[in-house]
Nucleic acid binder design. Structure first.
Lengths: 146, 146
DNA sequence: GGTGAAACGTAGGCCGT
DNA sequence: ACGGCCTACGTTTCACC
């Protein structure tokens, strides 16, 4: 992990589809050496993959919220039950197990407030393990580098 | 935005570097038609870009937390001051303006707990607008599709 | 790490529906 | 307006230095 590798990661973060020749001249190495490094980083799983990023509004995602969830039991089984409950809900984009007053923090992306209400009642409200739900609606994201 | 476009987006979310010919056969169209659609989606900014995703642990990110921030003033100026304060902090990966008891939710990625402590004291503690700080340490992320 | 050449993919014009 | 075919061009990839 020398400065060339760091440059590679920097470039690939900005543009995951940059061509190998462009990448090579951006970091100051030949295309073949660059390719070997990239392949090596992929093999070592430093680079886990590549993803396209989309405009949520144009895809009909008009409502984003972080939802803090408290469970009624602190057992491992309760956690597994809850995780299973949200795993296949496509509106749940992230699920984090956190420290603090509540056990979980979700990022939920819905089409609208109405759609979120449905999610709130039908998914979260129907999970027996859920004790408390606290919704933080995202009004703006002045920084989002993920 | 028909079913072909949706398939394209689905494939590019899974693998942003899939080749056009592979993408074409995955969605059941010819390469040229596929390419035109992809270029069109890029032009319309439905596809905003492509990014490589990395293994944070291998890059020395051993500590991730969501931090809820309350300000001591609800004015627009206070918000702008705070946003400016975190904009150039590279440990702050996300900054969301939210509804609820506190105004902001940050995602912070640090090398270690010690590094986070430094961030907590030197960055957040030194911002005069900040009234309350509540840290939720991420212990696990059973789902993270971003 | 660099060079070169073969294999492969891209990108755009053209035609048919 | 949209998909398929064809082809020149560029890029990737690998054996070799």
């Amino acid at each position: 992990m020398d400065k060339f590798d760091n440059k590679i990661l920097h470039e690939l973060k900005n543009d995951g589809r940059i061509s190998n020749v462009e990448l090579a001249q951006a970091i100051g190495l030949s295309p073949s050496a660059t390719l070997r490094r990239v392949q090596d980083l992929e093999k070592k799983k430093v680079i886990q993959g590549y993803r396209a990023v989309f405009d949520k509004e144009q895809l009909g995602i008009g409502f984003v919220a972080y939802v803090s969830i408290g469970l009624n039991s602190h057992t491992k089984q309760a956690q597994l039950d809850f995780e299973e409950h949200v795993r296949f809900e496509k509106e749940v984009v992230e699920c984090h197990n956190i420290t603090g007053a509540n056990e979980y923090l979700l990022r939920v992306e819905s089409a609208s407030l109405a759609a979120y209400k449905r999610f709130h009642s039908d998914v979260l409200g129907e999970c027996e393990r859920v004790k408390s739900i606290s919704t933080m609606v995202v009004m703006d994201s002045p920084k989002d580098e993920r």
